[in-house]
Amino acid sequence: MNDFLVKIGRGVGGVVGALYQAGREAIDQVIVNILPFMAFIALVIGIILKTGVGDWIANLLAPLAGSLGGLLLLSVIIALPVLSPLLGPGAVIAQIIGTLLGSTLIANGDIPARFALPALFAINPQVGCDFIPVGLALGEAEPETVEVGVPAVLFSRLITGPIAVVIAFLFMPLLPYD
């Protein structure tokens, strides 16, 4: 009987401990990663909305974001092997372009809501291009693999970046947005 109680106590203690630790991690993540970026985004959006720069950028982006051809062009530009490693860090560029698209063109109804799906892929063909050597090192890759792997991934993106947009475009009609 005693053994049983000890076992239950331990089990419950373990689960509660894990939950508590999970809560602590969640709060940490919010304070360290999420809130600072929200502050940054809020500042950018605030200035864009107030100064009218938003309309200007929206006019510039509208022809790119509102058609398959435009999104493909956007994805190819971002995936260029010279640009993609520069645009990668922290996904800052993707986050800003995404926020601009969302808070201006999509929110105003300038482009159909369905275009959100291909747009999510069009703004992001450079994902991780700045991080290839480190990512491969985390996978315990040999130096030779890194030498081959970096250009292989960069060139692959030129092909798979636009492919991703096309696939998302094909799935777009399944979204229930009219």
Binding site: I34, F37, I41, G90, A91, A94, Q95, I96, I97, G98, T99, L100, L101, G102, S103, I106, A116, A119, L120, I123, N124
Partner: peptide, 8 residues
Amino acid sequence: ELFVWLGI
């Protein structure tokens, strides 16, 4: 990097 998704 939540805003890649959240922005749109």
